[in-house]
Design a protein around this nucleic acid. Structure first.
Lengths: 214, 214
DNA sequence: CTGCATCCAGAATGATACTG
DNA sequence: CAGTATCATTCTGGATGCAG
């Protein structure tokens, strides 16, 4: 039950003892977006068995990475301050893994939380600071997000709202961000579908969010 | 055998599919220090079962993270360029885990490679750049290292050589680096044992290598 | 209904023995 | 030295049960 240890005295081995079990980093990823209820975690991590989710939540609590917090009648899980220190690690790991992503397969889901973190990994604050504030509406798989960029600040929320440009992208999302496909080409080929708004803002999106493939 | 996938289309899930299996990140950690033979990896990761090591090496090759390279009669494993891009991830994770380290337990080993990476995570190049070049000899558990700091450059090698100060530290190593114990106190209490050289250089060591506990 | 606990088949790991 | 083969143990995944 407790994470088996590696018998080594080192930072890495301690870290993987704490958060290296299967599913653990994905739980942490979703909690980086915000506190979540048990059921919210379960539906965000569609294929996690419920007993494994319960076990991981206990282990991560014991490790001091997350905690149960009562919020007006319901219980949510949230990162502790120490857990939140994993943010740079998760973002760096996500950036690395993003480069190895191919096109999404049919059985793969995109959740709002995972997409939010992926957007954070690809976000270029220095570039964004030079551009006017913009709100994008993005529909990707099952996730529908409003992405607000204001200076070097990024804010991603779920659901609708007023946006400057709204688009739907399946396989195109990664290609846009990797620079593999220019925005105009993406629209032409139908890989990205602009639903409404100023379609030229897709260029700005591609500038703001960029992660070159390896 | 192949890494089971999480059914999600995201950077993190892809990353943990590639390097999230048990022992994988420790193998990568040691390969970050330099190319290693099968037997070197096996002895650095004392408790890894040999079949698991063999399996991981194959999976990591298939993932494009490492490769087998023939070096004058023998075969070594080394990181691919893509694998080397994990360096910031491993260092960040190591820094996080280091903060959760307690005192070393008896059954825990310290290997030269793991210690080398831990020193890299704690190294402060900006601080080091202000200090004169210094060579430290450190004996920690089974690992005996020569640590050369020259400006903002750090070089850690195994074995002996001329150093400005040599010291042995058991539990003291972490406490020194975390700032939990001042160098003078460490020497007084016998937690750190200066073998020869200028003992006041331990202050410089503690300035150069620092990682505050959480 | 949410938040888990229990049960069981199958997969991964760990220990050890063995081979080219 | 560099792995492969075998087998006991542990963990995961999927289904289901159940208490607040």
């Amino acid at each position: 039950m407790a994470a088996r240890d590696y018998g080594q005295y080192s930072g890495i081995s301690r870290a993987v003892e704490l958060v290296g079990e299967r599913w653990a980093l994905l739980i942490i990823r979703d909690l980086l977006v915000g506190p979540r209820r048990y059921g919210e975690l379960a539906s965000g991590l569609a294929r996690i068995p419920t007993n494994i989710l319960a076990a991981r939540l206990k282990e991560l609590q014991a490790a001091g990475v997350i905690r149960r917090a009562p919020r007006s009648r319901v219980i949510v899980y949230e990162l502790t301050p120490y857990g939140r220190e994993l943010e740079p690690v998760v973002l760096a790991l996500g950036a690395w893994g993003f480069k190895a992503l191919g096109d999404p397969r049919d059985e793969q889901v995109i959740t709002p939380d995972s997409m939010t973190i992926d957007l954070r990994t690809a976000f270029r604050p220095v570039v964004a600071a030079q551009l006017p504030p913009t709100a994008y509406g993005a529909r990707l798989g099952g996730a529908e997000l409003v992405i607000r960029v204001n200076g070097s600040a990024l804010d991603v929320t779920r659901g609708g709202g007023d946006v400057d440009v709204a688009f739907a992208a399946g396989t195109g999302f990664r290609r846009l961000i990797s620079g593999e496909l220019a925005p105009e080409r993406a629209i032409e080929t139908g890989v990205v579908d602009v639903l409404h708004g100023r379609r030229e803002l897709l260029d700005r999106f591609a500038e703001t969010f960029h992660l070159a493939a390896a």
